[in-house]
Each structure stands twice: as structure tokens, then as C-alpha cells.
Write a protein that binds this DNA or RNA. Structure first.
Lengths: 120, 120
DNA sequence: TAACTGTATTAATTCGGTTAGTACAGTTAA
DNA sequence: TTAACTGTACTAACCGAATTAATACAGTTA
């Protein structure tokens, strides 16, 4: 369900968050889908349950999932988190664009890159 | 010359690297410009010389600067590092675009954002 | 009742980042 | 030549975040 072996050295709980967020945004995990239990996922990834719990807790704070003691964790029904994600990604995009500016890459060139490299 | 107080919690040496890289790319520090000495910059930023040395060493590995024992560190004359930077930023850009895709933001919309938000 | 959920808490550990101190060799100007 | 700079190297210590480990408790479900 999730792969954590990305070479980067970021914290494990961040990788778990990113993987789950991606699954939710892409629709692979639809609204109300039941996530694996904290202990279950911990075993399958061979990491500590506390680490999974941290990922779940933060994903809940961000609005992607809802956790219910005794029942489990589920993909949130409301999509407000997706809007927040858009805002965040847009900030990153503009920061990137500013860096390209200083490298002498025009906005037109950037736009071209985005439109052309559609199949990656 | 450099500010390190950006709220993020990234390593100090990374912030120093980013600051200097930005100054070099923007042209604020032209080719052959002399950088502050390791000890000098360490004092002015109130951090350990070892931390500065690490930033300088990595900037040299990336091709932005050249360090000469006894003389100092200088902005590199050849611009190959800038091309490498472009490649790296382009990778980041395409990764971002892929995320926008899944959020339902079209490439045309992305291009529009890039062109419109010119003054940020 | 038994087996599952999420949650909370505390302690120990691991590891990268950072500091501290010292040392050495090359450069430069008085 | 000497003094004061440079970059560089090395070791030891420290700090804090990430992670593991071990329990414990309360709600849910079959």
C-alpha cells in the first residue's frame, strides 16, 4: 500500500504522511475509506506504531483523515484540505518561479516547460 | 550580507548555502568576488566556523565557488553550476506540476498562475 | 468476553547538526 | 623574516529531533 524506501533522509512519519496524502488526493483512497490500523501499518512497514500514530495525528490535523477511537481512521469526507493543499503548492510554485527568474529563465519559458513535459 | 533568521528549521549550513547561492546566481556576487573568510563570516553570524566551512565546502563541490588555502574563497568563473541548478529546479517544477495534476489543476491553469503572478 | 480500535505516557536510544578546541600549511604585507 | 591572515583537518563533546520500546486505558465490535 505504501512504500517508504525513497532515498531521501526525511523523517519516516513525513514519508508516511506524503504517501497517504498522495493516495487520498489521487482518489486511490476515496472518502470514508478505512485506513490500515496504526498497529497494522506499523507491522507491515516494520516501524514503530508511535511513528504511524504521529503521521495519522498530523494528517487528521490537516483535515485529510478522521480518527475514531475504537473504530479506526478514515478518509475525510470534506475536501477543504485539498484547497489548503492547492494554496501550499501554489506558494511553492511561485517560489520556484522566482528562482528561475534569477537564472534568466523567463515566465514564458517556464510555462512552455509545464505544458510540454506532460508525459513524465 | 546574509540573513539566517528564516523561520524554517533547516540546518544552518543549508541556509548559508542557499543565501550565498542566491547572491551568486542573482549577480550580487560577480565572478571572482571574494567571499568573507570562514572565520569572519562565522563571527558575523555568531555561529561556529566549522558550520561555515561545511557550507563553503559543499558550495565548492557544486561548482559555485573556489577555495584557495591561504588566499580565500571566490565566486567561480565558470557557470556550469548554473546549468546544473536549472536542471534541478526543473525537476522540482515537474514534480510540483504532477501534484497539481492530481488536484485537478490543469497545465493551462498552472501556466496562467506563473505568468500572471509576476509581481510577488 | 475477546480481540480489535485510537490514544497517551514515559524512558531509552540513535543520529545528524553544531559547538569547541586545536593544529597545520599556504599567502600576504609590514 | 615575522605576524596576521587564509583554508583545511581532526577529535571530543553536546544537543535536540526522530525513533524505538514498553505499557496502559477507554471505546468498539463480533
Amino acid at each position: 500500500m505504501i512504500q517508504i524506501n525513497t532515498g531521501d533522509s526525511r523523517p519516516i512519519y513525513e514519508k508516511v504522511k506524503d504517501s497517504l496524502r498522495q493516495l487520498i488526493i489521487s482518489g486511490a483512497l476515496g472518502a470514508d475509506s478505512k485506513l490500515p490500523s496504526v498497529r497494522e501499518l506499523a507491522v507491515s512497514l516494520t516501524i514503530n506504531p508511535n511513528t504511524i500514530q504521529r503521521a495519522y495525528r498530523e494528517l487528521e490535523q490537516e483535515g485529510y483523515i478522521v480518527s475514531v477511537p475504537g473504530k479506526g481512521s478514515f478518509v475525510s469526507r470534506d475536501r477543504s484540505a485539498l484547497e489548503a493543499r492547492k494554496v501550499k503548492l501554489t506558494e511553492q510554485l511561485l517560489a520556484l518561479a522566482a528562482e528561475f527568474d534569477e537564472l534568466g529563465v523567463t515566465r514564458e519559458e517556464l510555462a512552455a516547460i509545464i505544458k510540454e513535459e506532460r508525459d513524465t
